[in-house]
Amino acid sequence: MKRSLAAAAVAVLLAVSGCTPAPSSEAPSSSAPVPVTPSAEPSSAPPPPKNCVTETLDGLDLPERVGQLLMIGAAVNAPSGLGDTVRRYHLGGVFLRGRSTHSAAELKSDIATLQKSAPMPMLLAVDQEGGSVQTLKGRDFPKLPSASRLGAGPAATLRDTTRESARRLAGIGVNLNLAPVADTVPTSIGTGNPPIGAFRREFGSDPVKVAAAIRTVVPASQDAGVLTTLKHFPGLGRVRVNTDVSRGATDTVATVDDPYLGPFKAGIESGSAAVMISSARYPKIDPDAIAAFSKPVITGLLRDKIGFDGLVISDDLGAARAVTAVPPAQRAVRFVAAGGDMVLTIVPSDAAPMAGALIDKAESDQAFRVRVDDAARHVLETKKKAGLLRCS
């Protein structure tokens, strides 16, 4: 094949230059076939096949793409109640909120029913950190030690505990854990840090040791079939206010070169599928907006400086006190405009205004439409990692 193409190219070149090949020493017989002059226009090669993510994205209209950007909360013990919302808004994900002691068989059945209501398989997430933050408990989901306790113990114990927990989650259809906590709480603050330290959710007070724990947790979970979410970027370990119940959470120390970013970098280097953005303020990085609405935090620091190319998900933008001054519709728009991909809200009624606002903005602003497409691609790439996409 390569030789014949090369010969054809030479013949074309000679013809164009006015030269002809030297005649053969033998005259051709009258029965010899008449040579075919090659075309000067080479045949165009067929385009390369689309990859699975591109093929899926190309098949989605704008409302369907916007739907991929929404993760809405559903009661963990009755998730099928969200089925109509899942269908109507083409949801990309569901967060199972609350606490449950239901059996694995019950939960698996409920989750399967919910997935069947979706036009496309969804990311199904829980908060299964351990300690005080453990969505699923009971006979099939033993109580997990806190991160603080696990971080103080052997790496092998942390690895095995994480792997076994992930195996149980994967067995019921959960594919995304909103964990691990990559925040570092300094000893000078300790339990005086309401969102993390007060509940022993941190792996330690030294970012180097926390980073080592994160390097253990991420592959242990993801290799067992459950993707991880590093939270709460760029860190909640130094704030004195809980963003869930109060406004004004501020880290006045954090910079773009903060050593406390180390655990997040470690998790990213270990392949974590997702990073969650906090709703606190970091004035030395962005004096004008909370992290969830901050382009310098999400795009400038996380994407450009650190180089994360996975899924960027918000902390709760539904009931969290830190965001209640902004209407739900604009919370979604601001997060996506800042560089976020998946808007998390535990309030089901937020789906309508958030989807509507994202569609309206995309229809009137071409740059934002490009951002929506980029965010939808990140969601679909995460689904591919979770084994949810099926392409021809």
Rank of each mutant, 00 (worst) to 15 (best):
L96G: 04
L96D: 01
L96I: 15
L96A: 09
L96P: 00
L96W: 00
L96K: 03
L96T: 11
L96V: 06
R97F: 10
G98Y: 02
G98C: 14
G98V: 13
G98E: 11
G98D: 13
R99Y: 13
R99S: 07
R99M: 14
S100I: 12
S100W: 04
S100G: 12
T101K: 11
T101C: 02
T101Q: 10
H102S: 13
H102K: 15
H102M: 09
H102A: 15
S103Q: 08
S103T: 14
S103K: 06
S103W: 01
A104G: 06
A105N: 01
A105Y: 08
A105F: 02
A105G: 02
E106K: 02
L107Y: 04
L107F: 03
L107Q: 05
S109T: 12
D110R: 02
D110I: 04
D110Y: 11
I111V: 12
A112M: 10
A112K: 14
A112R: 12
T113G: 03
T113R: 09
L114E: 06
L114C: 04
Q115N: 10
Q115E: 08
Q115A: 08
K116W: 00
S117P: 01
S117W: 02
A118S: 11
A118K: 05
P119H: 07
P119W: 12
M120P: 00
M120H: 09
M120Q: 14
P121A: 12
P121E: 15
P121I: 09
M122I: 13
L123T: 10
L123Q: 07
L123V: 02
L123H: 01
L124N: 07
L124S: 13
L124M: 15
L124E: 10
A125K: 05
V126F: 02
V126T: 14
V126I: 07
V126M: 13
Q128K: 09
Q128L: 12
Q128C: 12
Q128G: 15
E129F: 05
E129G: 06
E129I: 05
G130H: 09
G131C: 03
V133K: 03
V133I: 12
Q134W: 14
T135N: 06
T135A: 13
T135F: 13
L136M: 14
L136V: 15
L136A: 06
L136I: 11
K137A: 08
K137C: 01
K137G: 11
G138C: 01
G138A: 05
G138E: 00
R139Q: 03
R139Y: 04
D140Y: 00
D140N: 08
D140L: 07
D140S: 04
D140I: 03
D140T: 06
D140W: 00
F141V: 11
F141I: 10
F141A: 07
P142A: 12
K143P: 01
L144A: 10
L144F: 04
L144E: 01
L144Q: 09
P145H: 04
P145E: 06
P145C: 03
P145W: 04
P145T: 11
P145Q: 09
P145M: 06
S146D: 01
S146F: 05
A147K: 02
A147V: 14
S148Q: 09
S148C: 02
G151K: 04
A152F: 06
A152E: 05
A152R: 03
G153H: 13
G153A: 11
G153N: 11
G153W: 04
P154R: 05
P154D: 11
P154V: 06
P154L: 00
P154Y: 10
